[in-house]
Amino acid sequence: MLRRLRATAPVGLVPLAWVFATAAHVGAISDRTVLIGHLVMTALLAAFAVLSADEMRRHPVLRAWLGVIVAGVGVTLAGAYGVATGETGAARFAVAGWMLLPTMALAYTGSMLPREERARLYLVAAVASGAGAALLLGGVGPVSLALGLTGAGQTLGIATAVAVYE
């Protein structure tokens, strides 16, 4: 049961994280709620990494995603620090990190997997996620659009993974 939860929970958690980030951006949730969210996410990421590391080390694509998760612990802690102290640079680093790390892993996944494992969908997901990152980092367009594009791309990536492997 724990293995199934680890395999399928991200398909709900990834879009939830981007809805949460967008809600924080538009001021729909308090800084305290954002801080608590960062701390919960850090704990979930760390637990997932510990519980899944042995299995994820066995395949190059999963190894890349393990790297995203482990790096994501630090990125998320930077976000928690930014929210707790009002240090906007740390908060921006966290958002950019969560846009870029999965984008790179999606592109890698799409380039490594065979066609029958829906490799093209991972590449489409990487393009959408990367487009959101480019908009945000380039200061082009509304931030909500950038967050939405990244969230849609990353959701497509994790939904594809769950559909193919579960």
Score class of each variant (00 low, 15 high):
residue 18 W to N: 13
residue 11 V to A: 15
residue 55 E to Y: 14
residue 4 R to Q: 07
residue 51 L to A: 12
residue 76 T to S: 14
residue 59 H to N: 15
residue 64 A to V: 11
residue 163 A to F: 05
residue 133 A to T: 07
residue 106 L to K: 00
residue 130 G to P: 02
residue 75 V to K: 00
residue 97 G to S: 01
residue 47 A to N: 09
residue 129 S to N: 09
residue 7 A to C: 12
residue 34 V to S: 12
residue 23 A to L: 15
residue 99 M to Y: 06
residue 112 M to T: 10
residue 134 A to S: 03
residue 30 S to I: 02
residue 110 G to K: 03
residue 33 T to F: 09
residue 77 L to F: 10
residue 152 A to H: 06
residue 104 M to K: 01
residue 14 V to H: 11
residue 74 G to V: 02
residue 128 A to I: 03
residue 89 G to I: 13
residue 129 S to F: 06
residue 57 R to N: 10
residue 56 M to N: 12
residue 156 L to Q: 03
residue 26 V to D: 12
residue 71 A to S: 00
residue 150 T to F: 05
residue 1 M to A: 12
residue 99 M to N: 06
residue 41 M to P: 10
residue 89 G to F: 13
residue 83 V to F: 07
residue 126 A to Y: 07
residue 160 T to G: 01
residue 127 V to N: 11
residue 70 V to C: 05
residue 63 R to K: 10
residue 152 A to V: 13
residue 140 V to D: 04
residue 10 P to T: 14
residue 82 G to T: 06
residue 73 V to K: 11
residue 26 V to L: 08
residue 79 G to S: 02
residue 107 A to P: 00
residue 78 A to L: 04
residue 50 V to E: 03
residue 20 F to L: 15
residue 150 T to A: 14
residue 24 A to F: 08
residue 114 P to N: 14
residue 147 L to H: 00
residue 80 A to R: 01
residue 141 G to F: 03
residue 128 A to T: 08
residue 42 T to N: 04
residue 12 G to S: 02
residue 119 A to Y: 11
